[in-house]
Amino acid sequence: MRDAQTEVTRALLQPPRTPALLMFVALVLVPLAARFGAESFILSVFTRTIIFAIAALSLDLILGYGALVSFGHAAFMGIGSYAVGILATHGVDEILLQMLVAMLAAIVFAVATSAVSLRASGVYYIMSTLAFGQMLYFFAVSLSAYGGDDGLTLSGRSRLLGTHILANDRAFYYVALALLAGFYLLAQRITASRFGRVLRGIRENPVRMRAIGFEPFRYQLTACALAGAVCAISGVLLANLAEFVSPAYMTWQRSGELLAMVILGGMGTLWGAILGAIAFLLLEEVLSGLTEQWRLILGPILILVALGGRGGLAGLYARLRRRTGGGAP
């Protein structure tokens, strides 16, 4: 009985799911619509978008729910893609195995670096994540056995359970989308769980949480490891999409872009992060199609979002709903 009750309360407390559902339906339909245009181009743009949505989603887990501003999140994408590159060079091209290795490596890196970063707070935390990201970047640059600065071209996409199904662009798209959906549901469960509530409690007031018996460090560390593992998967996919691995995947600018995606979409909503990634990358795509000087437009848009956007696109949606009288207050 009590379980049922909490379920109901939880359902009431949860943000409306309609936008997320609409978004996923739209994403499922993309390959069908792509047939009427430049199919392989559209598919590759949207696969990339989905991959970045996974990364942004994982960042939102620690950023939105833990208020941990990680400025080195792209490092995990790098770990994922290098797991593919390095394993593939040594003849291991099963994607499930690559994902496993990528996740383990990401967890090790996340735990090792967060153990240091989490000791610092505020600006120092941000800067130390940045430093660790840079450290990994330079490490990758120096890996001359695996391409060094130039990167590493893969001979093809990984196999899935021994089949070459991922070589098909449409299949690859749906695999990425399924992973995104899976991680979205998982993240939703995590944030609604006791663990997620503790994390949010720490975000609001770490001192009080410590006083009632929750050691913030352990929860934050777990969240960082989790986010890192999920982000590594996006790296595995990115390497497969591009069939290329490069240190450029983990520059600090890339980490900044991931932050921008989450903020643009609205943090702490999960679906906002996904929407943010879609909006950011499509904006980039559309603007760069319009003019070579597209960065002159993108930059000011980001500035305006930072200056005026409260809660990003998800916040905008919530305000619109409130104005039209629908939904919870």
Binding site: L63, V69, F71, G122, V123, I126, G256, E257, L259, A260, I263, L264, M267, Q293, W294, R295, L296, L298, G299, P300, I301, L302, I303, V305, A306, L307
Partner: peptide, 28 residues
């Protein structure tokens, strides 16, 4: 133009705005 409006705001807003500024000025 930009920074004055960001004092006292969340660090994230500052990161985003100044990142936008980098993108803009590098292109400019």
């Amino acid at each position: 133009l930009v920074f004055r409006h960001l004092y006292g705001r969340d660090h994230l807003d500052q990161v985003l705005a100044t990142l936008g500024l980098i993108i803009f000025l590098n292109q400019a």
